[in-house]
Design a protein around this nucleic acid. Structure first.
Lengths: 220, 220
DNA sequence: TCCCGTATTGACCAGGTGTACAATGCAAGA
DNA sequence: TCTTGCATTGTACACCTGGTCAATACGGGA
């Protein structure tokens, strides 16, 4: 099973790496066999040899894009926070920072999103990725909305997770298109206020202190 | 000003209409001079004659897309609502309904958004459209966040408007890619709960009951 | 009726695309 | 050393793109 097919797989990785570089630099439309081949210092014939159809190359590239934009990693520091609203806030803060730090990845994600509108295979994979993304928030949301039905009259963990994902993606849509007119720091502050309003946390200040220690104040 | 340049302008409209139809059916990539010409039952030479550069056709098409997706219309019914939170909720409901009723338009908007990432002219126009879109919400938000600084510690009308726009665009991103796993109705309900939590409207008994429980924020 | 100006057409071009494949290079085994 | 097998190359092809432009169709004055 774990055959030493290293060389062949390494070539494929090299090609996908090159495709990723091209896509970041000039967009998905610019990911042509020849452009990728030049980036990888190979002949375009070889690229076509390893990915029989261009669609396969685009699909392999999508793997990488989703891995870096729609994959959430709950760090130890975040998981240790005792109150769910704190964790939700910390996670939102983490993801919004990622968007601000690596806008290129998010741009690529949206380019694929638009592609997925017409191509079923891509659409399904993006839908699944978003579903996994929501699941990470849903786990936290379940703690925030306990059986106390008066608290969440119609609010379920699923919808709260969807709102959280909306806040991230919606911010990206606005911030990436004109960073000048969009204050991500203020946006994040507003989101945190919303969270407190939804489920006041006893130690909100503690959570802020932790984040402040790691990153002294976002721009202003 | 009302020059009888009707015929020439009518042709351009006809061409843009055809381009819009093609874009809705098959995406922006499919908007080629020949495809548009065929849709309009003209020769591709004529399309190229009226729009010297394809970029101009794409630009004219963007006008139409923005007019139907990033243009907000506050109806009389909504404007008559006495309390700002009510108007905010009604506006969000209206826009989310529009997204659900005409997904094609929103898809095109995002396709252009992705295009704008690389093309400055498009990016600027989309940025401006989003700014106008936010402005509509900002007007309402200003009423919701009066000089009562304790109410909105860091929350300004601008950021609240940005959050509202995020909720719409973020919902579209999730709902359009896999309508099966996304309950827009539940999402809207959650958003309305958030609004009540943020600024309880007189007459919303449930919201008041919750607030009575414990909401006065410990400042700082 | 002819005539003329303009709206319209269709052929043509240069460039770029994905794909196929014969021709090469090359390194390891006999 | 020669041979063999495979990774790699470059060429070729059919198609499509945006753009140009001479040739044409056509409709309304004279």
């Amino acid at each position: 099973m774990p055959g030493p097919k290293a060389p062949e797989e390494a070539r494929r990785d090299q090609i996908v790496n090159a495709a990723y570089a091209v896509a970041r630099r000039a967009g998905i439309d610019a990911v042509t066999l020849r452009a990728v081949a030049e980036e990888a210092k190979l002949s375009h014939g070889l690229v076509a040899f390893y990915f029989k159809r261009k669609e396969q190359l685009i699909g392999a590239l999508l793997d990488r894009v989703l891995a870096t934009t729609a994959m959430i990693h709950v760090s130890e520091d975040v998981a240790r926070l005792p109150y769910a609203p704190q964790r939700l806030g910390a996670l939102l803060r983490q993801e919004l920072r990622r968007v601000a730090r690596d806008p290129g990845g998010m741009r690529l994600f949206f380019e694929y999103w638009a592609l997925g509108v017409r191509r079923v295979a891509i659409r399904r994979r993006i839908g699944a990725a978003l579903e996994r993304y929501r699941a990470a928030f849903r786990a936290i949301a379940e703690e925030m909305l306990p059986p106390d039905s008066a608290n969440g009259r119609e609010m379920t963990s699923a919808t709260l997770a969807a709102v959280a994902v909306s806040l991230i993606n919606g911010c990206a849509v606005q911030a990436l298109i004109d960073p000048g007119h969009f204050d991500t720091g203020a946006y994040l502050a507003a989101v945190e206020i919303l969270i407190e309003r939804l489920a006041p946390a006893p130690g909100a200040d503690a959570a802020r202190a932790i984040d402040a220690r790691r990153d002294p104040r976002p721009d202003r």
